[in-house]
């Protein structure tokens, strides 16, 4: 029983550490989207196409 509880604790702690750490990294490195949007021209009537996806 104690092993199981220890395992769960380790799993939860591991998940927290892994994702928390990466989250902090991503938060620090992602571009500031507001700046991009302010500079972006309104795309309507400019032609172009919205891709469903790329391979």
């Amino acid at each position: 029983m104690s092993t199981l509880i220890a395992a769960i604790i380790v799993v939860v702690a591991g998940l927290g550490l892994a994702t928390g750490g990466v989250y902090v990294l991503v938060e620090n490195t992602k571009p500031d989207s507001n700046i991009q949007f302010e500079n972006a021209p309104a795309p309507n009537n400019t032609g172009g196409v919205v891709n469903y996806g790329t391979k």
Binding site: A42, N44, V50
Partner: peptide, 9 residues
């Protein structure tokens, strides 16, 4: 007409 999305009207 939906504005500020790519595509020409």
């Amino acid at each position: 007409v939906e504005h500020r999305t790519p595509g020409r009207v």
